[in-house]
Amino acid sequence: MRIDFTVNGRRQEADDVWEGESLLYVLRERLGLPGSKNACEQGECGSCTVRLDGVPVCACLVAAGQVQGRDVVTVEGLADFARQRSRGTGARGTSLDEAQEWQAHGSDSRTGEGGGLSPVQQAFIDAGAVQCGFCTPGLLVAADEMLERNPDPDDADIREALSGNLCRCTGYEKIMDAVRLAAARRSEGV
């Protein structure tokens, strides 16, 4: 089947989709957006968290056919999404061409330089909340949405909001630090 939907502010189209495919598979394997991660494919880890019509969901549990005509934001579009939010306008996105540049080549650009991150992305780097990073995209989408709803969360609020996102590397302490840091920077207007 064919599906049309919006990803990170851009219309996307996928053809010859098998009816049993998940939104996660379509994003990763058909649209060149592998940022949402495939850690469990049963809604038990949160690594594939995306926003579907604004709501955080596990992309692995959304049937591809269900996203027809709907709006999806992935980690790849998070920085733009946050920028648009702070400007109070609609979201834009990464282009399909950019996104599909994914090839089997090792990256030389591991120098850590990069601009244009959303506050929560920057906080994850600064606080040491990233180790292997496989849980990071899902956590970022979930944490960003929580801070949107609740700009001044206490620790228990953070833990509850992130309780659907497993991390195996960090022991979560640095993730807590990162979300606190993002919240604090936001309240300071940084």
Partner: peptide, 26 residues
């Protein structure tokens, strides 16, 4: 029928179920 997908998609992802028809209620 599939709505939230939280049961059905797990079964499909893990090859436990191959229904002839999936019906989206969303």
């Amino acid at each position: 029928p599939i709505a939230g997908g939280t049961d059905v998609m797990v079964e499909i992802n893990f090859d436990h179920r191959r229904p002839e028809y999936l019906m989206d209620l969303n």
